[in-house]
Amino acid sequence: MPRFLKEHRKGLALAGLMSLQALILSFQVPMGQDASFLERTAFAVFSPVQSGVRSVFRGIGRIWSRYVHLRGVEDRNRESLDEILRLRLENSVLREGLGRLENREEAAAFLGSLEKAFILAEVVGIDAVNPHKSIVINRGASHGLQNQMPVVDSQGRLVGRIVPPLGPKEATVQLITDNLSSVGVEGVEHPVPGMLNGDPGSGTCRLAYVPASDVSLVEGETLVTNGFDGIFPEGLPAGTIISVRTDGSLFKKIAVRPVFNVRRPAVVAVLTGSKGEGG
């Protein structure tokens, strides 16, 4: 080994590692590209661990309730809760869909398609850097999930959408509170359209592109998706306006509190049937 390399071995190793990271960063220019091979590999290898850890602790927790205390009741309760969730989501999708149908044949075809309308999934991980940016769920490409599919919580409220990296058994969900998320929404009482962008610093959202001249949107108004973005179907509750102000610019500054709650591990539903329909 040349003397120079020998003397500066440690410094060169550090420089090499830092250069490698800089190279990885440079591959992501321009932003918005798909996840890199390295990122997808790391996600695919380690994401099952999250499901495993959660399963182990859930299993330990269930030992008491399942085998010692109230045997069988917990199972039936869980089945009932799942059934309620399924029916609630089905009801939500039905109401939204039937409102748009004009004849009996269309209604029959729509009802037939409901079997594949959504997939239930559990939240097994939260974003490693900012909990308001993304979550990881225990369903992936092998279950039929694809990028851009909308995700709702157990009450049918908008949570986000599937984004890369998408693993075979796990998927990443970009929350609507992420700063790179944009959702087409409008008010329930006053259907003024706007774009809902996330603010992961505070865990809230901002409603953009509402003209300063508009006076109809006020605090407390509920916002629902309008389907204009081509990703989210219309009618999903997305947030509630918490403040409205103007600062002399063309558009209002509107802060919105999202209505979903995935702070603790929960069940979500991926709307597989609505991908690309968007309104």
């Binding site: 990885i24 960063l25 380690f46 974003d127 490693a128 850097v129 993304s134 984004v163 990296p165 790179l180």
Partner: peptide, 19 residues
Amino acid sequence: LLVDAFSLGVFGLAGLSLT
């Protein structure tokens, strides 16, 4: 890199500072 793989955003940011 592991932290970045489990976070939406630029892949490699946490890697630089932790290295």
